[in-house]
């Protein structure tokens, strides 16, 4: 069920402001790709164009193509709502719905209009909840309090709940926007272990500020940077993670991964 992503010549705008210019790359199915780079260079912006969340911001739009298994998600007849159903997303700060229980949070995506045609009884819902929470390594911790509010969990548990919510709808791709930046080291470790498990089933793209994390979880790494002060962000280099962190082609990448700037 994992799909590949091919991005070509993508320019990303906020109204008239060109934020990211000329991005071209591919992501293989069932791999983890990490986006690294200094703040404000457009990593998250690029990530958010992959499931058309970018255009949620008023005035934001893109030029270029994003192919999901060969189909352009920016074609005029594609409904962004369907794109987001296929490509799940986990955000920087855990955002379980505060008014919903743990159980309701997990099945939130299944209750949406397009999935209602599929008849689901209580037993199959229960099965989805258990499978998703097990998939997110959270089942053992919450199985006895599924009806308690999701906001009562710790930060790391909340983030795993959000991952369970994202995988409950069985997406093709999972996007993660700095999923550990608000978490403590132990919770971070739990999420990283989870990413290791998830890549067997999903194509994963993760934005991270933490280079050790990129080195630990990803097989491919892309380095983003601004073309210059006041200029748009761009993808400097992309390659196997081991190569990016040892012998990158570009000087700027080497400076960044060795800690000389950024």
């Amino acid at each position: 069920m994992a799909k590949r992503i091919d991005v070509s010549d993508l320019d990303i705008y906020y109204s008239k402001f060109l934020a990211v210019e000329g991005v071209t790359f591919s992501v293989e199915p069932r791999t983890v790709t990490a986006f690294i780079g200094p703040s404000g260079c457009g990593k998250s912006t690029v990530l958010r164009t992959l499931n058309r969340m970018h255009e949620v911001i008023p005035g934001a739009y893109v030029n270029g193509k994003v192919l999901l298994d060969g189909e352009n998600i920016y074609d005029a007849d594609v409904d962004p709502v369907n794109v987001r159903r296929t490509i799940g997303m986990v955000f920087q700060r855990p955002n379980p719905f505060p008014t919903m229980s743990i159980y309701e949070n997990v099945i939130a995506g299944l209750k949406l209009e397009r999935t209602k045609g599929v008849k689901r009884d209580k037993a199959s819902m229960d099965a989805v909840v258990e499978k998703s929470l097990r998939g997110a390594n959270l089942w053992e911790e919450v199985k006895d309090r599924l009806n308690r509010p999701g906001s009562g969990l710790s930060g790391g548990q909340q983030q795993r709940l959000c991952i369970a919510r994202a995988i409950a709808v069985e997406p093709q791709v999972l996007l993660m926007d700095e999923p550990c930046s608000a978490l403590d080291p132990i919770s971070t470790l739990a999420i990283e272990d989870l990413i290791e498990d998830l890549k067997e089933r999903y194509t994963i793209v993760i934005v991270t500020h933490n280079m050790q994390q990129a080195a630990r979880v990803s097989s491919t790494t892309a380095f983003f940077n601004l073309a210059g002060i006041g200029q748009p962000g761009r993808m400097v280099e992309m390659g196997p993670t081991a190569k990016i962190f040892s012998t990158p082609t570009e000087k700027a990448t080497e400076d960044y991964v060795s800690g000389r700037f950024g």
């Binding site: 949620v56 987001r84 799940g88 955000f91 700060r93 955002n95 939130a108 995506g109 994202a166």
Partner: peptide, 22 residues
């Protein structure tokens, strides 16, 4: 919070579903 709104939209909610959910 925009985090809840974006969370709902990222699940594939329409605008009206987002309003009801978040």
């Amino acid at each position: 919070p925009s985090a809840h709104i974006e969370g709902a939209l990222a699940l594939g909610a329409t605008r009206w579903e987002m309003v009801r959910m978040a």
